[in-house]
Amino acid sequence: MKQKFNIITSTCVPLPMENVDTDQIIPARFLKATTREEKFFGENLFCDLRYNADGTPNPDFVLNKPEYSGCILVAGKNFGSGSSREHAAWAIAGYGFRVVISSFFADIHKNNELNNFVLPVTVSEDFLAELFGSINENPKTEVCVNLPEQTVTNLATGRSEHFPINGFKKHCLMNGLDDIDFLIESLATHPIPRP
């Protein structure tokens, strides 16, 4: 789960749909697990889009198209809206994605990704449209995500953008630390109010 983040260069899996809610990322029936087993959640990522009703893979869904691979998911705007289920972030991480690029993320899901060492990268609508175009033209298009520099580069066109992330989270991701570590330590120095 905890891992250190630096520079990632990878091909991408494109999901141009907008408003992909967390029910689509992982339907409610998969919330019955009581563990975080990555394999289970990864196998059921986008389940209802990815598999037909009889359980066979839907050949039209991007995860079933052999030409697309890589650890970067490129998604349409308003990714991760709806339910707060962290299972959605576990499914994304469990599948093997380390970065999600979109022009807009829902708040709760964005935090959930960060807490699971998946980096949400917010880009402009323009950048996103161009990236979908590049991937469409050549599924082997690579993207470089440089966390120290906070840049994302479409290596097909050379176009690069700066992406926002606060210094604290960046430090955590680069050093494989999480918020619980921080909070436990803070109790010693920062008293909390009485009940």
């Binding site: 707060s84 289920r85 962290e86 299972h87 972030a89 709760i108 935090n111 959930n112 807490n115 699971n116 604290f168 999480d178 918020d179 619980i180 921080f182 909070l183 436990i184 803070s186 109790l187 909390i192």
Partner: peptide, 16 residues
Amino acid sequence: IGTSEVAQVLASQCIL
């Protein structure tokens, strides 16, 4: 909040 954040509150009665 997400499940990791639930753990934050359980452990520290705080959240980031």
